[in-house]
Computed example of a mutant assay.
Amino acid sequence: MQAFPKNIVPLPQDFYDQPTLELANALLGCLLVKETNEGITAGYIVETEAYLGPNDKAAHSFNNRRTARTEVMFHRSGLAYTYQMHTHCLFNVVSGGEGRPEAVLIRALEPQYGIEVMKIRRGMEKNIGLTNGPGKLTKSLGITMEDYGRLLSHPPLYIANGFSPESKSVGKRIGIENSGEARDYPWRFWVTNNKYVSRHQKSE
């Protein structure tokens, strides 16, 4: 098992202060880390989706919808927005800044550290399939609804520098067919040809 390096540190708070579409692109290649009693698990972000709040029909905060679930999106960038979908917990990075409820959904990771812990959590033997989807990656890393509102510039849940992808692709978001014209916005970003991306499609 590859040991988690001691020199990995969280990205600074100001990393999250960039526009949401730029952040969704910049997160590709970054390392998502979760520290738990079972150990440290981490993977490189290889797929994201941007949700631009009030004017985005696919966003939970469309029309400035403010509920107990979306409340964290109205606060500072760089917070964790977790929500439950069916039996899965999904993880987002709050963006847009105070009063602008936007977020970036983390859709897929390339597993890197704590892979044996991930396999136990998922009941799997192969690396492929551990983290190639938004619900899969949270279960593998131990991200739960208890992480709602966490500041991502500090442990136990944080994002650190990783690698610089040679090529990135852009296309339509997934699973938002009932969101009118928003379903066609090219706000999904992924590392080109990475085998851990949740769904491969042609770039826009």
Rank of each mutant, 00 (worst) to 15 (best):
A3G: 07
A3P: 11
P5C: 06
P5N: 04
P5S: 04
K6L: 11
K6E: 14
N7E: 15
V9R: 13
L11T: 00
P12H: 01
F15G: 01
Q18S: 09
Q18M: 13
P19A: 03
P19S: 04
L21G: 10
E22Q: 13
E22K: 12
N25F: 12
A26H: 08
L27G: 08
L28R: 10
G29D: 10
C30I: 01
E35Q: 12
N37T: 10
G39F: 04
I40Y: 02
T41V: 12
A42D: 10
A50V: 06
A50N: 07
L52R: 14
K57I: 00
H60Y: 09
H60E: 03
S61N: 03
R65H: 10
R65C: 11
R65G: 01
T67R: 07
T67A: 07
R69K: 12
R69S: 02
R69D: 02
H75T: 14
R76Y: 08
S77C: 05
G78A: 06
L79E: 07
L79R: 12
Y83G: 02
Y83C: 07
Q84R: 11
M85H: 03
H86K: 13
C89E: 03
C89A: 13
F91N: 06
N92C: 06
V93F: 08
V93D: 07
V94R: 03
S95D: 02
G96D: 05
G96M: 06
G97Y: 05
G97T: 07
E98Y: 14
G99R: 11
P101W: 03
P101M: 02
I106N: 09
L109D: 12
E110F: 11
P111K: 15
I115D: 10
E116A: 15
M118Y: 11
I120L: 14
R121F: 08
R122Y: 09
M124I: 10
M124A: 15
E125Q: 14
K126W: 08
L130P: 08
P134E: 11
P134K: 11
K136A: 10
K139C: 07
G142C: 03
I143W: 05
I143R: 02
T144H: 01
T144I: 03
E146S: 13
D147K: 00
D147V: 00
L152K: 05
H154Y: 12
P155K: 07
Y158R: 00
N161C: 04
F163E: 08
P165K: 03
P165E: 08
E166I: 02
S167Q: 15
K168W: 07
S169K: 09
S169G: 15
S169R: 06
V170L: 09
R173S: 01
I174K: 00
G175A: 00
G175W: 02
I176L: 01
I176F: 02
E177I: 04
N178F: 06
G180F: 00
R183P: 00
D184I: 01
P186I: 00
R188D: 04
F189H: 11
F189Y: 15
N194M: 06
N194D: 13
R199K: 13
E204H: 12
